[in-house]
Amino acid sequence: MNLFGGTISNLENGLRYSATKQKTIAQNIANVDTPNYKAKDVSFAKMLKDAQTETMSAFRTDQRHYEFKQPEATSGVYSYTNLRYRQNGNGVDMDAEQAKLAENNIYYNALIDRTSGKLTSLKNVIKGGQ
Score class of each variant (00 low, 15 high):
Thr61Met: 02
Leu15His: 05
Lys21Thr: 01
Thr81Cys: 02
Ser57Cys: 08
Lys40Ile: 06
Leu3Asp: 03
Asp50Tyr: 00
Met1Trp: 05
Asn104Thr: 13
Gln70Thr: 14
Ala96Gly: 11
Ala39Gly: 15
Asn104Ile: 14
Ser18Phe: 13
Glu97Gly: 04
Lys123Pro: 02
Ile106Thr: 10
Asn10Ala: 11
Phe59Ile: 15
Asp33Val: 06
Asn90His: 11
Gln52Lys: 13
Gly14Tyr: 00
Gly128Cys: 12
Asn82Phe: 09
Asn109Asp: 10
Gln98Ala: 07
Tyr85Ala: 03
Ala51Gln: 03
Arg16Met: 07
Ser75Val: 05
Phe44Arg: 10
Asn105Ala: 09
Tyr17Ser: 01
Ala51Ser: 06
Leu111Met: 10
Val42Trp: 00
Gln63Pro: 00
Thr55Trp: 04
Met94Tyr: 15
Met94Lys: 14
Asn13Val: 00
Asp33Gly: 09
Lys69Phe: 11
Asn105Val: 04
Gln98Glu: 07
Arg60Asn: 10
Asn31Tyr: 13
Asp62Arg: 05
Arg84Ala: 06
Ala39Glu: 10
Thr55Ala: 08
Ser79Pro: 05
Lys123Tyr: 10
Lys49Thr: 13
His65Glu: 10
Leu3Pro: 01
Glu54Asp: 15
Gly91Met: 07
Met1Leu: 07
Tyr85Gln: 06
Ile25Pro: 02
Ser116Phe: 05
Leu48Ala: 06
Ala99Asp: 07
Val77Gln: 03
Val42Ile: 06
Ala39Lys: 09
Leu48Gly: 01
Tyr37Val: 09
Gln22Asp: 12
Gly6Asp: 09
Ala30Tyr: 01
Gly117Val: 07
Gly5Phe: 07
Asp41Asn: 05
Lys40Gly: 03
Thr120Cys: 02
Gln130Thr: 07
Asn105Gly: 04
Asp62Gln: 08
Asp33Phe: 10
Lys40His: 10
Met56Phe: 09
Gly129Lys: 08
Gly129Cys: 06
Phe68Gln: 07
Gly129Asp: 08
Glu103Thr: 13
Ser75Leu: 07
Gly117Ala: 09
Asp95Leu: 03
Leu122Asn: 02
Ser43Trp: 00
Asn10Lys: 11
Ser57Arg: 11
Phe4Ala: 12
Ile25Lys: 06
Gln52Pro: 02
Tyr80Lys: 02
Tyr108Gly: 00
Lys38Phe: 03
Val125Phe: 03
Lys23Thr: 14
Gln98Gly: 02
Thr7Ala: 05
Ser57Thr: 11
Asp41Pro: 01
Phe59Asp: 13
Ser75Asp: 08
Tyr78Phe: 15
Phe44Cys: 14
Asn104Gly: 14
Glu54Ser: 12
Val77Ile: 14
Leu15Cys: 07
Lys23Ala: 13
Val77Leu: 05
Leu11Met: 10
Arg64Phe: 03
Thr74Gly: 02
Thr115Trp: 02
Ser57Val: 12
Asn31Cys: 15
Asn104Asp: 12
Gly91Phe: 04
Ala26Ile: 13
Thr61Pro: 00
Ser75Tyr: 04
Lys21Gln: 02
Tyr78Gly: 04
